[in-house]
Amino acid sequence: MSFLVGENMTGGYGSADILHDCTIGVDKGQIAVIVGPNGAGKSTAMKATFGMLDLRLGRVMFDGEDITHLKPEERVLKGMGFVPQTHNVFTSMTVEENLEMGAFIRRDDIASTMEQVFDLFPILKEKRYQPAGELSGGQRQQVAVGRALMTQPKVLLLDEPTAGVSPIVMDELFDRIIEIARQGIAILMVEQNAKQALNIADKGYVLVQGANRFTDTGEALMANPEVRKAFLGG
């Protein structure tokens, strides 16, 4: 079983189910990528894994423990980090304060973790006293990822970290994400740039209408003609 896995998840925001028997998971040091059309339920699957909506069926396992009924805050304490798709920084607070808030649950010295984040994203060091709301979209995404890294999570959930980011910065962000994974952190991410993402993925999920359509290694999905035709634009 994977290090983090949402198994057979069924549920939604209200009466109607968005997810139908959906399973996503990731292992330590690996990158798992979820792709699929708009409205497929990718973000919903991430939120379900993080306990932000009630599941009717299925369970979420983390490090061999059933965490289905834990609140998001409690999952943070367990070692999970989440970067939502939107509203993922504190806009009125400075970059440094964003990182401090990311480390809110920690009582030890956070200076070295902050240095690591600055090493990973040098631009943040430069802009550390600027409000996050005044940064460019790409810089903001770096703040968002940096904030989530501050708890030193064992698993990181990223919902479209490269949204609205130029191709160059995107490649750079992917490099950084690989770097984070190499440190032994499990990364589960949703990506709109399916080709590039599957290229770096150990595991890929194609979601359609809240259900798993294809699940395989990133490489195999890239090679699969059906996936190529329908989801990767040929």
């Binding site: 998001p72 805050e73 939502p84 304060e97 808030m101």
Partner: peptide, 23 residues
């Protein structure tokens, strides 16, 4: 202060404050 900043964070973005473990 840590508590004061967490108050600003909560006021700025309640959801993200929750995801940061702010009570």
């Amino acid at each position: 202060t840590r508590t004061g900043k967490s108050m600003r964070a909560y006021s700025d973005n309640e959801n993200l404050a929750l995801l940061s473990g702010i009570d």
